[in-house]
Nucleic acid binder design. Structure first.
Length: 405
RNA sequence: CGGGGCGUGGUGUAACGGUAGCAUAAAUGCUUUGGGAGCAUUCAGUCAGGGUUCAAAUCCCUGCGCCCCGACCA
């Protein structure tokens, strides 16, 4: 991508109404735009990062055997009445709306009821089980207080996976595999060292649940570390601990749902012809919240350095030709070469001064930076900076590919 | 939902009840060119509605919006 064509603009100062570190940095770097309290747009750079996170999660879900689906946001009242969750006293953050003809609809805050209902027509025998489905889908929650930038919003993408098994034993086997998959996801995005498998209360519908909590100041929960080696913890809500806990943000959760959502209608016949409810589990990750958490954990000195796994681009080429056509061509050649080699590069080909380009590059935080200028051309080399290692060196043109691989 | 703070050009900030100013961004031109350059010109603003007053960004009321603390968070 050529930066002169990129729809994004960095800015010197963050809007005064943003205090959260993740929002300040992401807005200043041009990754996101605030629409209203608790509602954000993703701009090209931000969307690239978000999609990297999503694809990384998708890969793990597929490895788990999950099959991707995409369900509707508009949901029928009747399904939720069966489980008692249409009632505002039970669920107080519904966004509800109406059809012109007058029927009630809800904008889904989760999908247990609809997914269970949909599967009734596809599950009738033990031979249909087990399986799991997942989706990346917008959820709507009328939070009384949105906060912390993209960490707690009213509209957000959620990866929700649902597992369907014949009984508790079969379910637990899957549940343990899901734990491992979640571990790998948080390791891959660079926050594994701060993320703890945390025993949680499970809320109103599950007696057994775990959260993945990442220690950071923007967190809303408090956890107590029970095993540093295994990265395990317990949520404050479970028991009354006395020692000081850690502020942490819930980046993922896994629930054993049991038969609560299948009991009404989602049943199967076992080998003996007896009818049983399906044993369900649900597993959530909010990719945008995860993105915010990555910023909270990894940003230093009010600037972000993206891990390679989720960076919007791998390489940022800074063209300092400043009117020199041969230097400009060299930068363009490098860009073409990297692109052909499948290395995602952002070429800063704008008519701007060096200082402005460097400042913008620092703000965007792409992990590898290559400067092409008269100086580097004369030396037959590139100036290469690895932001993660904080190292800068001259790399011969012929060797740049090896360095990046 | 309880408490606190706050709404001025795109963004950030000034202005005692008395001419809405500065910076930045944006546009044009000249100059400059390896860490957010300089000069000149230009564009652009008081959240909305009502009230008090000769006069309201400023005081009062209502609404809307934003931030923070707490509660809630399936």
């Amino acid at each position: 991508m050529k930066q002169s064509q990129l729809f994004t603009k960095t800015r010197f100062e963050a809007p005064k109404d943003e205090v959260a570190k993740n929002a300040e940095i992401l807005i200043r770097a041009g990754f996101i735009n605030k629409e209203m309290a608790g509602v954000y747009d993703f701009l090209p750079l931000g969307l690239r990062t978000l999609n990297k996170i999503i694809n990384l999660i998708r890969e793990e879900m597929n490895n788990l055997g999950g099959q991707e689906i995409f369900m509707s946001s508009l949901q029928r009242k009747e399904l939720w009445e069966r489980t008692g969750r249409w009632n505002d006293d039970v669920v107080d953050n519904w966004f509800k709306t109406k059809l012109k003809e007058g029927g009630d609809l809800g904008l889904g805050f989760t999908h247990e009821e609809p997914v269970a209902n949909m599967l009734e027509q596809y599950v009738s025998s033990y031979k249909d089980l087990p399986f799991s489905v997942y989706q990346f889908q917008n959820k709507f929650r009328n939070e009384t207080r949105a906060k912390s930038g993209i960490m707690r919003t009213r509209e957000f993408i959620m990866k929700d996976l649902y597992s369907f098994n014949v009984d508790l034993d079969a379910h637990m086997e899957f549940y343990e595999k899901a734990k491992d998959a979640y571990r790998r996801i948080f390791d891959k995005v660079g926050i594994g060292h701060k993320t703890y498998l945390t025993l949680a209360s499970g809320g109103s519908f599950s007696s057994n649940s775990h959260e993945f909590q990442t220690i950071c100041d923007a967190g809303e929960d408090t956890i107590f570390i029970t095993d540093e080696e295994k990265r395990e913890a317990v949520n404050k809500e479970v028991d009354d601990r006395r020692e000081t806990g850690h502020k942490a943000v819930e980046v993922g959760n896994i629930f054993s749902l049991g038969t609560k959502f299948s009991e009404p209608h989602l049943k199967f016949k076992n080998e003996k012809g007896e009818e049983n409810p399906v044993f369900m589990g649900s597993y959530g990750i909010g990719p945008a919240r995860l993105m915010g958490t990555i910023v909270e954990v990894l940003a230093k000195d009010n600037a972000m350095i993206w891990p390679e796994s989720v960076a919007p681009f791998r390489v940022h080429i800074i063209d300092l030709s400043q009117g020199d056509e041969s230097v400009k061509k060299s930068a363009l050649d490098l860009y073409g070469g990297l692109t052909d080699a499948g290395i995602e590069a952002l070429l800063d080909d704008r008519e701007a001064r060096a200082g402005e380009k460097f400042a913008d590059a620092d703000l965007i935080g792409i992990p590898h930076r290559i400067v092409v200028s008269k100086k580097t051309e004369a030396a037959g080399a590139y100036e290469y900076t690895n932001r993660i290692k904080a190292e800068t060196s001259a790399i011969l043109k012929s060797e740049i590919m090896d360095v990046l691989k």
